[in-house]
Amino acid sequence: MAELIQDKDASVVASVSGDDPDKCNEEVRHSRTFLDVRSEEELLSGIRKEEQLGTLTPNIAAAMEELFHNYKNAVSKSGIPNADEVVLSNMSVLLDRVLLDAEEPFVFPPHHKMLREPFDYYMFGQNYIRPLIDFRNSYVGNISIFNDIQEKLQQGHNVVMISNHQTEADPAVIALLLELAHPYIAENLTYVAGDRVVTDPLCKPFSMGRNLICVYSKKHMFDVPELAEMKRRANTRSLKEMAVLLRSGSQIVWIAPSGGRDRPDPSTGEWHPAPFDSSSVDNMRRLVEHSGVTGHIYPLALSCYDIMPPPPLVEKEIGEKRIIAFCGVGLSVAPGFNFSDAVASSMTPEEARDAYCQALFNSVNDQYDVLRSAIHGQQGSRASTPTILLSQPWD
């Protein structure tokens, strides 16, 4: 498990891509304010200096400082010997990226391809989240099915993962749990992403390191009523980009049809996957079927809410409070099934749509319950069932 811990030097060096000699010669733009800091005091002083200069708004500056302290507290619980160095290194790189974006904002296109040159945003995100995961108490369900998925991708097929969604860190959690056993899947996933992760200043650098289809969530469609029509048109463009992507084949796409992150039950405090929107599932199914390429849909479950839980209620304003923890996380996939396997011939189109959506949701719930028993019920791999086999493919 030692190879899963990044030291300070590796965290910085891995953020500069070196695969292509020509690209490697490109200059990586940095802000000297944060990249050269050598202590916590210098980093916090840099935040205040940029606020005084007007480069950072008071809200962003306060969020940066709060994030630093929360991240430091979480990483300190990981037990890694160089925790302070890792925190300073990772936070200085993040704040450097946030400051550069404040000076020259990056605008995400409908289909965003991860940026790895000259700065490797993908590895930056991996290195930032890595020390927050307790790999000793983390599990992957049915790792063998990912072997099947990879074979299908190599054959030119498309794969769609219908999943619950728990935190802003979900893409990094998925990639970190798969990076040793299935690095191709980890690095080539395309995520259907809501507008908040491509507009929040503290989220944008992480999003820049992922392949995204950018959409406006239904939950926020009418936050500003006069912008609703613009959001609809933008979503139409994104759907067209998704169709083009799927027509190319060998694509693996992650989508959370609940339209947002899971929230705890207000009466019990327990976390469960949020219900899926059947129209979103059906739209994705139709896109797969009409792509002209063989496609497969798999139910995927994520259990990682402790690492970065969302606010208890859906918020309209950008800039939520980031609570961070060192914790175990889980990922599980179940065999895919066809639309015809989940519906009856006597059903109306609407009934069939709802039945297929419910079948996927039930599978995600079943897997989630096993992950919850393993991680939060402290049962570990003993929580495995005849259909959901837990493993630690990094061990």
Rank of each mutant, 00 (worst) to 15 (best):
I143G: 01
T167D: 04
R116C: 04
S89Q: 03
F146P: 05
P118M: 02
V107E: 01
D120H: 14
F119V: 15
D96F: 07
L153M: 10
V93R: 15
L189T: 11
L95R: 03
H111G: 03
V86T: 08
G156L: 13
V173K: 15
N82P: 08
H165C: 03
E103H: 06
Y122M: 04
E168C: 10
N142C: 07
I149C: 03
A175G: 09
P81I: 07
E179V: 06
D134Q: 00
M123L: 09
A169E: 05
Y128F: 15
F108T: 02
A83L: 00
Y121E: 04
P109L: 02
F124Q: 06
L99G: 00
Y128T: 13
R97I: 15
R130Q: 12
I133G: 00
E179M: 14
N164H: 09
N142M: 06
M161W: 07
F108Q: 02
N164Y: 14
P171I: 05
R130K: 13
L88F: 12
L99T: 09
I133N: 01
I129C: 05
F146C: 04
D84L: 05
P109M: 00
A175N: 05
N127L: 09
Y128N: 07
P131I: 05
H111R: 14
F108Y: 03
S92H: 11
L153I: 15
V86I: 13
P110I: 04
F124K: 07
E179P: 09
E117M: 04
H111F: 14
